[in-house]
C-alpha cells in the first residue's frame, strides 16, 4: 500500500480529488432504513400516547415493554449477524430451550440456590448454545446445506433433545438468586434483565460495526466470492457467526429461566419468527450485506409497543397479528425500493 504513495504526484488526467469522508451527511442518514423505521416507532408511540394517555405512557408500562423484549433482544443480536451474512437461524428458540433445560437440570441436582449454582448454570447453558450454533454453522459452511434447511432441522432436533432429557415435563426450578436478582430484580427502577440485554446489544453493535469480525460479516453477505478472493476464511467465519448466535441463545436460555422460573419447553414456539421479523423490520436485508444493530432494536420494539398499545386500548388479538404482518411487509417493500435505488436503477 505504502509503495503507491511515494509515486507520481502529478496524477495525470482529471484533477479530481477523492474525499475521505461523507459528502453530505443528511443524504447518508436519510438512506438508512433504521432512521425512517425509528420515525414509525415514534409515530406509533405518539398515537397510543394520545389514545391512552394515562395508561400507555406510564413508566410502569414502558419498563414492562422493555423487560418483555429483553430476551428477544439478546437473540436479535445474533440473528442480525446471521441475516447480514444472508443466512437465517430458525433454531434459536429450540436452542434456548435445550440450553435452559440442561442448565436447569444440573442446577436442580446441585440443589443450592446461590450464585455458584447460577454461574454453573450459565456456563452450561452457554456451552450447549455454542454447540448447537457451531453445528448449524458447520453444516451451513462445510456441508453446503442451505441455512433455512439446516436450522429447520436443528430446530426440531434440539427441541426433541430437550423433550428427551425431561420426558416432556418442564423443569420448574431455577436458583432463587437468578429469579430474584436477574429475572425480577431492578436497578434504579430499570429491570436487571433489561440492563443485561442492553449491555449485550451494545457489545454486539460494537462487534458488528467497529471490528474486523463485523466487517467480514458484511463482506460475506454482500459478495461471498469477493470475500473468498481477498483471503477471508468464509467457512470459518460462518461457523463463528452461527456459534456466536448459539452462545447468545444460551445466555437467553438462562435469562428465560430467570424470568419464567421454568424451561418453557412447550413455549418459545414463535420466538424465532418474532426475532427474524424484528431484525428485518429494522432494515437488515435478508439478501445479506446490509443491516444495523440499532435497526434491529427499533424493529424489536415496534411489534412489542404495538401489542402493548393494542392490549391497553382493547383491540382484538387478531388485529395485532395483522398489524405486525403488514408492517413487516411494508418494511421489506421499502427495503426493496432502497435497494433498487442503491444499485443505480431508476425502476
Amino acid at each position: 500500500m505504502s509503495s503507491t504513495t511515494e509515486h507520481q504526484k502529478a496524477g495525470s488526467g482529471a484533477p479530481m480529488e477523492t474525499s475521505a469522508s461523507h459528502e453530505n451527511l443528511v443524504e447518508r442518514v436519510k438512506a438508512m432504513q433504521s432512521v425512517w423505521i425509528l420515525g414509525v416507532l415514534v409515530v406509533i408511540i405518539a398515537v397510543f400516547g394520545v389514545l391512552a394517555p394515562t395508561t400507555f405512557l406510564t413508566p410502569g408500562n414502558i419498563t414492562n415493554i422493555a423487560q418483555n423484549v429483553s430476551i428477544w433482544a439478546v437473540l436479535a443480536v445474533g440473528m442480525t449477524f446471521v441475516i447480514i451474512t444472508s443466512g437465517i437461524d430458525l433454531s434459536i428458540g429450540s436452542v434456548l430451550v435445550v440450553s435452559s433445560v440442561v442448565a436447569a437440570q444440573v442446577m436442580e441436582r446441585m440443589g443450592d440456590q446461590g450464585w455458584g449454582t447460577a454461574l454453573v448454570g450459565l456456563v452450561l447453558s452457554v456451552v450447549v448454545g455454542i454447540f448447537w450454533g457451531c453445528l448449524n454453522g458447520f453444516l451451513v459452511a462445510k456441508a453446503n446445506v442451505p441455512p433455512l434447511i439446516v436450522t429447520l432441522g436443528t430446530l426440531s432436533v434440539a427441541l426433541g433433545v430437550a423433550q428427551i432429557l425431561t420426558g416432556g415435563l418442564d423443569v420448574r426450578s431455577a436458583p432463587a438468586v437468578l429469579q430474584d436478582n436477574i429475572g425480577y430484580g431492578r436497578l434504579a427502577g430499570v429491570p436487571v434483565i433489561t440492563i443485561v440485554a442492553l449491555v449485550i446489544v451494545v457489545l454486539g453493535g460494537i462487534l458488528l460495526h467497529k471490528t474486523r469480525f463485523g466487517r467480514y460479516t458484511y463482506a460475506i453477505g454482500s459478495n461471498e466470492t469477493s470475500a473468498r478472493r481477498v483471503g477471508i476464511n468464509v467457512d470459518r467465519k460462518l461457523v463463528q457467526i452461527y456459534g456466536f448466535t448459539g452462545l447468545l441463545a444460551g445466555i437467553a436460555g438462562i435469562l428465560s429461566l430467570a424470568q419464567y422460573g421454568t424451561t418453557t419447553i412447550a413455549g418459545q414456539s414463535l420466538t424465532n419468527l418474532n426475532v427474524i421479523a424484528a431484525v428485518v423490520i429494522g432494515g437488515t436485508s435478508i439478501f445479506g450485506g446490509q443491516g444495523s444493530m440499532f435497526g434491529s432494536m427499533v424493529g424489536l420494539f415496534i411489534p412489542a409497543v404495538l401489542q402493548s398499545g393494542f392490549v391497553i386500548i382493547g383491540v382484538s388479538p387478531y388485529w395485532q397479528t395483522v398489524a405486525v404482518g403488514s408492517i413487516l411487509i411494508t418494511a421489506v417493500y421499502v427495503d426493496q425500493q432502497r435497494r433498487s435505488t442503491a444499485s443505480g436503477g431508476r425502476r
Binding site: 504513495t5 496524477g11 479530481m16 480529488e17 474525499s19 475521505a20 469522508s21
Partner: peptide
C-alpha cells in the same frame, strides 16, 4: 489512504464512503 490512492489514480471516485453498489 484509499482517498489518496484514488486521487493518485485519477479515478472518477468522488468519495470513499459511498457503497460500491451505488
Amino acid at each position: 489512504r484509499s482517498a489518496q490512492a484514488f486521487t493518485e489514480l485519477g479515478s472518477a471516485v468522488r468519495s470513499v464512503v459511498v457503497p460500491v453498489g451505488a
